[in-house]
């Protein structure tokens, strides 16, 4: 399966850029329209475990990279077969200024909290997501805090350090 997997993906998705990052980690970059298709495709191949959804802010290129890592649940029986080690890292690029994309919950249910978190920390809007309510943060920040242009040290200096000490009479 390992040998033919890149070929299978290339066959079905001619636009995909398939490269092997290292042993057992396959990086696939696709145009964003094809993401749902390729995720359904690999899920049917047995990659039923969505490990995580991540987001990388490539600020110099003005793009967000959404990263979906999938692998398969393997029941271990007897010997180490090497099965279940293969990971596929599916990546898409979206525009930084117009950060909207579709949700993948119909394919992988457990993407829900990950997308919620990315919405909150990066400001990426996932259309069709049932609840994009605040997850982790309490305050509102000028820029979503995980973006590269949010300077946390500066924010601390300007905000938390500006709060006055309690003045007490001696």
């Amino acid at each position: 399966m390992d040998k033919t997997l890149p070929e299978k993906i290339r066959e079905n998705f001619p636009n995909a850029d398939v490269s092997s990052v290292e042993e057992e980690r396959l990086a696939v970059t696709v145009p964003k329209e094809e993401l749902i298709d390729i995720l359904s495709f690999v899920k049917n191949l047995g990659f039923d475990h969505l490990v995580m959804v991540s987001c990388v802010d490539w600020i110099d290129e003005g793009q967000f990279e959404l990263v979906y890592i999938v692998t398969s649940y393997v029941s271990y029986n007897g010997e180490s077969s090497g099965k279940g080690r293969q990971h596929i890292i599916v990546k898409i690029r979206i525009d930084r200024s117009k950060a909207t994309f579709r949700t993948i919950i119909p394919v992988y249910q457990n993407a829900e909290p990950y997308e919620r978190e990315i919405h909150e920390l990066y400001g990426v809007d996932f259309q069709g997501h049932p609840r994009l309510t605040p997850l982790l943060l309490e305050r509102e920040y000028p820029v979503p805090p995980f973006r590269k242009d949010f300077d946390s040290r500066n924010y601390v200096k300007e905000f938390f350090d500006s709060i006055p000490e309690i003045e007490e009479e001696k």
Partner: peptide, 25 residues
């Protein structure tokens, strides 16, 4: 459990022998 991305004891308690120490030592 699989659909919701369960791992660890939750998955092993439903009879799935999924352990990274064995799958990818």
């Amino acid at each position: 459990a699989k659909e919701l991305g369960a791992v660890g004891q939750v998955l092993r308690a439903v009879g799935e022998k999924f352990d990274i120490r064995k799958v990818e030592p």
